[in-house]
Design a protein around this nucleic acid. Structure first.
Lengths: 109, 109
DNA sequence: TTAGGTACTTACTAAATGGTTAGAAACACT
DNA sequence: AGTGTTTCTAACCATTTAGTAAGTACCTAA
């Protein structure tokens, strides 16, 4: 805690909080990660599991998460196409954050 | 965890993660909260403590945080003016989130 | 009289984010 | 021939968020 605070005191790009925010902020990212959870899930399933998300945002954020190694993507050469998404270890490592966010929301909002 | 997940499965406005994100997302909010920390701090001090933030964003986000009861503001009728900010209990309660964000950033980014 | 300090406020601009709609590809089924 | 399925892609627009720069008010000290 004291260590983190010291780093925050020079809150520039080296600040780990800021680094996390740059990658994990946004309306859908953490929600998608948490929704995938420990499953292997198809694009369409995910879409149905996150009401309100547009196809554009879902695919865009999935691509981002794949690029940044939070999510693994596996395409099957079938017709109609099948694509499966699952979390990497990095993706699973965001769960403590999501848990705290959920706990805070439940208690205070 | 299972409970949270269940709630997430209908990820609408009732989702506590989403509620938290609506209030706490943004480039500066959590940074400001963590920077105030347990101190009583003046506007100018805070500005110097958060390099890169513009006056507009600082005051705008401070106002938001005051409105939403994360921060307390106390103005002294002096010249030059003096205004002191400090965290409420609600503000302090966001620390678990910030800690996890920092931990994640340190370990992974 | 001028410059300086503090805490803002305003106007304007730029960039990032999100939403809507349409469509493409490729095959199966009717 | 036409419809449906699934996973995307692209164009366009609206909204939100953030940055820049200038200015305000009031008093103090040089």
């Amino acid at each position: 805690m004291e260590k983190n605070q010291k780093i925050i005191l020079q809150s520039d790009e080296n600040c780990p909080v800021r680094k996390s925010l740059i990658i994990l902020s946004g309306k859908w990212r953490l929600l998608i990660v948490f929704q995938i959870n420990e499953r292997v899930i198809r694009y369409g399933e995910l879409k149905r599991a996150i009401p309100g998300i547009s196809e554009k945002m879902l695919i865009q954020e999935l691509n981002f998460l794949v690029e940044h190694k939070f999510v693994t993507k596996k395409s099957f050469p079938e017709i109609p196409p099948r694509v499966e998404y699952s979390l990497t270890k990095l993706g699973l490592d965001t769960f403590p954050i999501i848990d705290k966010l959920a706990a805070f929301g439940l208690e205070n909002l």
